[in-house]
Structure formats: C-alpha cells, structure tokens
Amino acid sequence: MCSQMRWRLCWENELELADHVELAKFFRATYGPTGAFNAKPFEGSRSWAGARPELRLIGYDVDGIAAHLGLLRRFIKVDGIDLPVAELGLYGIRTDLERLGISHSIRAMLPTLQDLAVPFAFGTVRPELQRHIRRFGRYGPVTVFPHVRVRSTLQEPRLDKPPTRIDDALVVVLPIGRSMSDWPSGSMIDRNGPEL
C-alpha cells in the first residue's frame, strides 16, 4: 500500500469544496457499513463528524481517496491535570484496503507530529481496533490504556440530552516530545470539546 499511496498533508483551510465532497463520500462509504447512524454526519459536503480537524493526512491511490487521518491540537485534562496533545481521529481506510492497517497512516503522520513539537499524540478507538493499534507498536512506542473514561462535549447542544457524554474507550498515546513517564496516570480524561 505505501509504495502505491500518495499522501497529501493539508491544513483545513486549504481544502476546496470538491475536496470536502469527495471526503464526505469517502466517510459515508467507510463508516456506513458500521451503521447508518455512523454515516449520517457526512451528509452532503460535510467531511467531519465532531470537532473539525486542523490538519488532515489524506492517502490517495489509483481509485481515489484510500485513507484519512485528522489531527487537532488541544488541551485535555487527565484526572484534572492539563496536558497539551495532538488528538488523532477521524480515521478511515477504504474497505478494500482494511487489512493493510491504521499503522501506515500514523507512520506517515509522525514527521508532522514531531514538527508540531507536541508532547503527546492522543486518540481513542473502539475496542474492535485494539489489535490494529497494538500492531503499530512494532514501529514505535505506543501505549494503549483500557478502561479509561473519556468525557466529551456533544458537537451541538440538544434539549433532549446532557451537554457531555462519557465513553469507556481505549486510549492510545504516542510520546512525541516527552517520555511516556510524563503522561499522568488517571482513569478520567476530559477532552474539553467534541471528539475528533
């Protein structure tokens, strides 16, 4: 996949309307098989689900968009301790390439994370992706924390729901500018915004 993949790293304001339309179609096709509700945020030309990324890594091959990984710098709180991170999310890979893994996208993003000089990259994944994430550990230091509660705000306030939700997720941390020993221990992370 890597030799046939062309990677495009772009800031959010560099995307044209045609890019958003193509990405929205890609996400509907990628997330739709996991449930119609998961594809719903990508109706029309909307190419993000929760928080909007500031940087995107988009992989292309001869068939168009093959992979996507979003990045958003933010402060999170780990059991009340403020921590700057680059949140990684909005991951997708075209269904015909799924067995090639998330690790290719993260490895392609590593130089950018180092250039941004963030102490850690942080993300959350569904338990079903645990094997894929652990495989990435062969290429670099990655720590997966199970049984961590992550509080996020809803993207839009609603009268029928509380303004935040708490998920039990697998938390993935990559040390970038600091050592993993500097990551605070804790069982609750406040994302201070919607999930990427």
Rank of each mutant, 00 (worst) to 15 (best):
P119D: 00
G59E: 04
D82H: 02
I102T: 03
V142L: 08
G137Y: 07
G140Y: 08
Y91L: 15
L57I: 12
A117M: 02
F136E: 08
S47W: 08
Y60A: 10
R99L: 15
L90D: 01
R134A: 15
V78L: 11
F145E: 13
E98F: 09
R138K: 04
R52P: 14
E87N: 00
T95Y: 01
G92K: 03
D115L: 03
D19K: 02
A24I: 05
L72R: 02
G123D: 14
Y91R: 00
A39M: 14
S47F: 10
K77N: 08
K77E: 14
V144G: 14
A86H: 09
K25N: 04
A39F: 13
A24L: 08
A29N: 11
I106N: 05
V125L: 11
G32Q: 11
D19A: 10
H68V: 10
R135Q: 11
E54R: 06
R28Y: 05
R99C: 14
P119Q: 03
G64C: 11
Q130R: 15
G59R: 05
F37T: 06
A24S: 11
I81G: 01
V144C: 15
A24E: 03
V118S: 00
G70L: 08
I81M: 00
E87S: 04
F42R: 04
D63T: 13
L100W: 12
E128W: 02
L88G: 04
H104L: 15
F122E: 05
H20S: 14
I58Q: 06
T34E: 15
L55G: 00
R28M: 07
L110N: 05
P111N: 00
P141R: 12
S105W: 04
A39P: 14
R74M: 11
V118C: 04
A49Q: 01
R94W: 07
A29F: 05
I93L: 11
L71I: 15
E22G: 10
V144I: 15
R134L: 15
S103Y: 03
L69M: 06
W48H: 12
V62P: 02
E98Y: 09
L15E: 02
T124N: 01
L69Y: 04
L97Q: 10
S47Y: 11
L57W: 12
G59C: 09
G44L: 04
T112K: 03
E43K: 13
V62Q: 09
Y91W: 14
I93Q: 09
V118D: 05
D115R: 00
F37W: 02
L113C: 09
H104E: 09
L100A: 14
T143C: 06
F75N: 06
A121T: 13
I106Q: 06
L72F: 05
R138Y: 05
V144D: 12
